[in-house]
């Protein structure tokens, strides 16, 4: 079982995160000077580590997230043996009318280095808000699924997924 070691290593990582980011920014400038300026070149570059509270603030500002209850059905394993493939299925019992529909579904894993896993955007043409994918989890963590309606209302559900082996490459 590596979980104890894994956990302390992650805590260490988090501590070093800030220093690492600063050092990284410098080395980035030195090591890859050939990349042209513009928005495109940032693609694929590691981004700074982020706390889940900061992610939530970045994505949703100060909007309150209502407890979705039965309106958001999340299918996630209680225990994921392998953190690198965790199947997640989301079914929303929310209106999909042209004037009010589920615009975005966010999957956020609290303890990942960058908590935002994926964002799915739907249109009223989808007919029903139901998506599924496989995500990576670094460690045992809460997974938040948040549905954003076209009028800005937010519905959220949190599930804890226990992970035996982390899957975020270190």
């Amino acid at each position: 079982m590596t979980s104890g070691f894994e956990r302390s290593r992650r805590r260490m990582l988090r501590l070093i995160g800030a220093a690492g980011a600063a050092a990284g920014a410098i080395s980035l400038g030195l090591a890859i000077p050939a990349i042209p300026a513009g928005a495109q070149q940032a693609l694929g570059m590691p981004q700074d580590e982020e706390k889940v509270a900061d992610t939530m603030k970045r994505l949703f500002g100060n909007r309150t997230i209502q407890d979705a209850g039965d309106r958001l059905k999340v299918d996630a394993p209680l225990i994921a043996e392998n953190g690198s493939v965790v199947p997640i299925k989301v079914d929303a019992e929310l209106p999909m009318a042209p004037d009010k529909y589920v615009k975005n579904i966010y999957i956020i894993a609290d303890k990942n280095r960058r908590p935002l896993n994926a964002r799915f955007s739907l249109t009223p043409d989808a007919g029903k808000a139901s998506i599924a994918t496989n995500i990576r989890l670094a460690s045992t963590s809460d997974v938040r699924v948040i549905a954003e309606m076209s009028d800005g209302t937010l519905f959220g559900v949190t599930r804890e997924v226990k992970v035996t082996v982390g899957g975020c490459g270190g």
Binding site: S84, L116, A118, S121, G127, I131, A132, N134, G169
Partner: peptide, 17 residues
């Protein structure tokens, strides 16, 4: 969909139409 590195290898996605 906007994805990050926290999506598994060989991504599988299901969506409604």
């Amino acid at each position: 969909a906007e994805m990050t590195q926290a999506v598994s290898q060989n991504p599988l996605i299901a969506f409604p139409v």
